[in-house]
Amino acid sequence: MNDSALRIVWIYPDLLSTYGDQGNALILERRARLRGIPTEIVHVHSSDAVPVEGDVYLLGGGEDRPQILAARRLIADGGLKRAAERGAAVLAICAGYQIIGETFGDDKDNPIAGVGLLDIRSGRGDRRAVGELVADVDPALGVPRITGFENHQGRTQLGPGTTPLSRTVVGVGNGDGFEGGYAGHVVGSYLHGPALPRNPGLADLLLRWTVGEIPPLPPGWGERLREERLAAAIG
């Protein structure tokens, strides 16, 4: 790995990348590059060890079986947990969000052990949540209203150690009026779309956590897409 570059570690694209999850890595890289920050995207396959020296770790969505396999391998490997403990930023989406919690449900809703980066527990709801989602982010994070596409059957309960990422305006999210959760620099969300291309503010939050204050960028296609999707979902 390059020591001077911002290291974006994409965890298990072979297991957790069902729907455009690569977009989160590409947008982080682009928004860093536009500010003159050199970046490097490291692909970590499920047969590889997870490096501990990364700056931002990304986990995507996955089907039931790959999700369980990914959780088992991440626990056995231990690298992601050590990286989070030393303060690296983590963004985990959908199946990845559930994996970084304490437990999640398999296809029969039996609890499966997660990596335990967030104090959350996920199970299966009665109905699949499918559609556009809009939510207002915790004001402490300084990120404007987020949008994305959710497609999951999970219901997630947050324990006292985890703060809701946002309050849902449209959509299901965690299932209790909130969407996603965070603690320190670890954030989880159900949002595909993918989340960072659809929400430049969320991408910049991860960059601020990693490199400190960053200059704003002139509005581009990402901002335009966000406004278009907000207008479409709210009407």
Binding site: Y19, G20, D21, F149, N151, H192
Partner: peptide, 9 residues
Amino acid sequence: GRDTSWLWD
């Protein structure tokens, strides 16, 4: 499909 995420694949 109403989700355009696949564009990023």
